[in-house]
């Protein structure tokens, strides 16, 4: 058949580090910057995005042979919007405070380019197994990226991690790290670090 794309295992591994959605593809910057002021909101966002990503990948893969080329984006958006609404309702029902804290960022998952790009690149072309592996890999990669930024911001900004005090109480707490500028500063430094590691690797391999 037309399974000429990467295999399931390749898709899975690529999603985590080699093609990390945040550090390598620079997709989904809105939640990366907006909800990483603490580990709890960041991980809730990662879980909600992962749920939508995996479900949308599976659904798109199921109907990939029926898609009309000029209507495919419409179908992707419809699918994603449905799963986002489900995720939003689940959060409002079971994690009400978190749902209020994330506010409009949960509905904004609909416009996260990461999800629509996976529908376009992978699941509209490849089978269910590969799409599932791709969805899980990308979701893990996204969660890892959010976790790395949220860890730096929460630890430096509040001296805590997941709300648990990790730095001595004498730590002053760099307020700027939990405010929007802290997100840009942290993302910039971490992006630079990832880029530097990549260059070193490439130089060693050459």
């Amino acid at each position: 058949m037309s399974n000429d794309g990467p295999t399931a295992l390749e898709r899975f591994i690529n999603g985590i580090l080699p093609e990390n959605p945040v550090y390598r593809q620079l997709l989904g910057m809105c939640p990366v910057l907006a909800v990483t002021n603490g580990m709890k909101p960041a991980m809730t966002m990662a879980a909600a995005t992962g749920f939508v990503l995996i479900c949308a990948n599976l659904m798109t893969s199921l109907i990939r042979k029926l898609l009309k080329p000029h209507l495919r984006i419409l179908v992707f958006t419809l699918t994603i919007a449905t799963f986002v609404t489900i995720a939003d309702k689940i959060l409002a029902a079971f994690m009400y405070d978190m749902s209020k804290q994330l506010g409009p960022y949960v509905p904004l998952i609909i416009v996260n380019c990461l999800i629509i790009s996976r529908c376009e690149i992978c699941s509209s072309k490849q089978g269910i197994g590969v799409s599932l592996a791709d969805g899980i890999g990308m979701a893990l990669g996204f969660a890892l990226a959010l976790a790395s930024i949220a860890s730096v911001r929460e630890i430096l900004g509040m001296g805590s991690w997941f709300g648990i005090q990790v730095l001595p109480a004498a730590w002053p707490g760099w307020g700027i790290m939990v405010l929007p500028p802290g997100a840009f500063i942290t993302l910039g430094f971490l992006l630079g670090l990832v880029e530097w590691i990549q260059h070193r690797k490439a130089r060693k391999a050459a």
Binding site: K68, H70, L74, V75
Partner: peptide, 21 residues
């Protein structure tokens, strides 16, 4: 002929969302 999938999915998703609600 072009849009039947969109219509069908919209109905399906609408039903699903109603059930969630």
């Amino acid at each position: 002929a072009d849009g039947w999938l969109v219509i069908l999915l919209a109905l399906l998703y609408g039903g699903g969302l109603a059930a969630v609600q």
